[in-house]
Design a protein around this nucleic acid. Structure first.
Lengths: 110, 110
DNA sequence: TCAACATGTCTACATTGTAGACTCGAAGCC
DNA sequence: GGCTTCGAGTCTACAATGTAGACATGTTGA
């Protein structure tokens, strides 16, 4: 791992989705959020591998669903960013923002 | 390659830098632009591998430096996005933008 | 002629992304 | 109770992307 450990693109999307979903940050919802925002398919495998890697890096934490009552078996996990996770995400978003600034018209990100 | 071929994070930064530098989009400058924006080191190897991969995907093109007159040996290459490259970049930036919207305060991207 | 320099190439490997089959256990139905 | 359905998560194997650093090549100027 490089010392200025940066985020891959999918990792970035996952962290953003968790931040955005806040207390609703369960894996299935994260998946839907990314699929919607990025207009692309996200398999469970891809998502869980990434979640695990982010946890290993100390960028996120989870706890068992504080309010269950659904259908399935295994309890869901509620994810949240850690302080280092938020910091890494900030850096990552800042890089894109810096290079994007002034190109809004060309990029159509009105 | 997935059919909805998405950009890796470094690829995204490289395309953004090229777009931004416009007619000054030579490899060394691209490198500096990314190092500055992302506050991280970028080796030549990393950059050229990525440029080559992006070219293979048809996302960028290059031509020999139209106005030479520098020091070194091999002529520089001037890079530019292709239409598909711009499209892919738009998609990629749009995903980040969509998930970022409303989180400006938290992310400090004022 | 030769050192310094500016680009670009090559090789080998590490990290991240992806797909899809599989496991687990609770809930509902009969 | 036994069986099916379902939601969530695990596992394995591989593909794509990212990274480092040594090397090559040709120009310039002392």
């Amino acid at each position: 791992m490089p010392d200025t450990s940066s985020l891959g693109d999918f990792e970035q999307l996952v962290l953003l989705a968790i931040l955005r979903l806040d207390s609703d940050a369960y894996a299935p919802g994260i998946r839907v959020a990314i699929e919607t925002a990025a207009a692309r398919r996200v398999t469970r495998g891809a998502l869980y591998s990434t979640l695990e890697r982010l946890e290993t890096k100390g960028y996120l934490q989870w706890r068992p669903d504080p309010n269950p009552g659904r259908r399935g078996g295994v309890p869901r996990r509620q994810f949240a960013l850690t302080a280092p996770g938020l910091k890494a995400l900030r850096r990552s978003v800042a890089a894109v923002t810096a290079l994007t600034r002034g190109l809004e018209r060309t990029l159509g990100s009105a």
